[in-house]
Amino acid sequence: MLDHMFLTVSDIERSIAFYEAVLPHIGMTVRYDYDGKDGPAGHPDLKGFGADGRIPFWLRHGTPAPGAVHVGFIAHSEAEVRSAHEAALQAGAANKITPGPQAYYDPRYYAGQVTDPDGYTLEFVYKPWQH
């Protein structure tokens, strides 16, 4: 299982605003700032997002590598997929795959994809057999 990930973004304030507008639609309602400059791992100025006592998704400033990362976010319904996808478009994302069944994976796999302001592919996924 994945515990956390860092996404390197070119404009941290723009990315914070983007993800604050999108992630609550899939239940990630907590935002956390971590200043780890004194820690042994050397991760200063991380901006985290999560819920239920977990912060699995982190942003850090740097040079993006959008072709290297695809992020699949769990949605809890088809409506959440559509809501997150629409919120992402309203916040400046570009549409990649309109929400709907992705039968080439499984007829029950429901997802939509966008690219964020740095070009990372974000997928909002509902898999009813996992809920």
Rank of each mutant, 00 (worst) to 15 (best):
D33Q: 09
A111D: 10
G119Y: 00
K96G: 07
G62Y: 06
I55L: 04
R60S: 12
Y105D: 06
A103P: 02
E123M: 01
Y109V: 03
G119S: 03
P101H: 11
A103Q: 09
D116M: 04
H76P: 07
R54F: 03
D35K: 01
L46R: 15
P66F: 10
Y32H: 14
F18V: 04
P56I: 00
M1S: 13
Y105F: 14
F6W: 06
V22G: 04
D52I: 02
D3S: 15
D52Y: 02
E80W: 05
L7K: 07
F6Q: 11
D33E: 14
E78Q: 15
P101T: 13
E86R: 15
D35W: 03
E20R: 15
P66W: 08
A84I: 09
T8E: 15
S83L: 13
T121I: 08
I16N: 04
Q102V: 13
A87C: 06
G67Q: 06
T63D: 03
D52G: 05
Q113G: 04
D116E: 02
A21I: 02
A87W: 01
A84H: 03
F73D: 03
A17H: 09
F18W: 01
G50Y: 06
N95G: 10
F124S: 05
I12V: 14
A103N: 12
Q90D: 11
I55P: 03
Y109H: 10
H61K: 13
Y110F: 15
V22I: 10
A87I: 07
A21D: 00
D3V: 10
Q130E: 08
V22Y: 00
H70F: 04
F18T: 11
A88Y: 08
A41C: 12
V22A: 00
D45L: 11
P107N: 09
G72H: 05
G100A: 06
A17P: 05
H76N: 13
I97V: 14
D45N: 15
T29Y: 07
G48M: 07
G119N: 02
I55H: 02
A65S: 08
V30N: 14
G112S: 10
A41N: 13
H70A: 05
A91G: 04
R108N: 12
S83D: 15
Y19T: 09
V69P: 01
P44V: 09
I16Y: 09
A79N: 12
M5V: 14
Y32T: 14
D45Q: 14
G72A: 14
G50A: 03
V69K: 03
Y126D: 01
G62P: 04
D52T: 02
F6N: 15
Y104R: 14
S15D: 13
Y120A: 08
T98W: 07
G36F: 03
P66S: 07
E13N: 11
K37Y: 10
M1A: 11
E20W: 04
A68T: 06
